[in-house]
Write a protein that binds this DNA or RNA. Structure first.
Lengths: 159, 159
DNA sequence: TATTGTTATACTCTATAACTATA
DNA sequence: TATAGTTATAGAGTATAACAATA
């Protein structure tokens, strides 16, 4: 694709000098591209980033509780409720009462939830493969390590 | 900092197997950490991510028009209005009428806007230096190149 | 008293349509 | 008619306080 034409004769391109020196700026821009691109990939499945992430974590962690899932996703507990509601109303997951603690729900996927998981994960992997086609294996591992290190240095978040 | 204690005896840690294979997941998480960390850095200056980015681009591109700034920030025109309003109401920038096109505004920073820019940019640079302390120079350039490539492969965005 | 899940609420960011005034 | 800026509005995502049921 060609570059967009300049809108003024004298100012041909915008000067990003200050922002370009910030690695955080580049990471955010790349992250935004990945997110919006990924949203398109998930749209055919009726999933958004948060519902997709929740579904994946529930399938990979059967019986997970809502409080654990909220922590795992770095989402506040109240905000997880609507996410779980969306998955449950489509019969993709169940809220099963925990006999030993009747306050809590154990989250488990249904058969159709598992099927959607399989298809959505495959689509997301294909999406990633396309978007990262230009990065060789050593670069990918280097980037992954760098991202993990940033997360550890910063917020001291979850896994 | 020690790891948070497991909340259930049997499920000691959450299984991130599927998500961990996605580079996009790590980039998003790192980006989130950087953003929330950066928001704290900007708070003392009364700036948020968007107002900070706008101020920087206006200082670096005197006379920039709102439509150009919106494009440069990948923000829809209507959403830029409130950002500019916030900066203008604090007398950090001016909307100057363009004589040759009386529809447009040329954005320019004021003296106090320039002063705040200097202080905020220094604080952001210090913030980055702290957050990226674990990354050596070659790693930083490799990450920067990777982020640019992802942006080019994906949305075909601006600079 | 503390915890699980819920409701209500508010704030930020984002996205679209429609308006005005200029060109 | 097309463009620059504006207004209004609606949708996500995020954050906090307060509540019911249970521990």
């Amino acid at each position: 694709m060609p570059k967009p034409l300049p809108q003024t004769p004298e100012e041909t391109t915008t000067n990003y000098a200050t922002l370009n020196t910030l690695l955080g700026y580049h990471i955010k821009r790349a992250s935004d591209v990945i997110q919006s691109d990924l949203s398109e990939t998930l749209k055919p499945f009726g999933l958004r980033m948060l519902t997709y992430t929740a579904l994946v974590l529930i399938v990979d962690n059967p019986g997970l509780r809502q409080s654990q899932l909220a922590a795992a996703m770095s989402v506040e507990h109240p905000n997880l409720v609507v996410i779980i509601d969306a998955l449950e109303s489509r019969d993709l997951i169940n809220r099963d009462r925990v006999p030993t603690d009747r306050r809590a729900y154990a989250l488990n996927c249904t058969l159709s939830g598992r099927r959607l998981y399989d298809k959505a994960v495959a689509a997301v992997r294909a999406h990633e493969a396309r978007l990262l086609a230009g990065l060789d294996a050593p670069t990918r591992t280097a980037v992954t390590q760098a991202m993990k290190l940033i997360r550890a240095t910063g917020g001291a978040q979850d896994t």
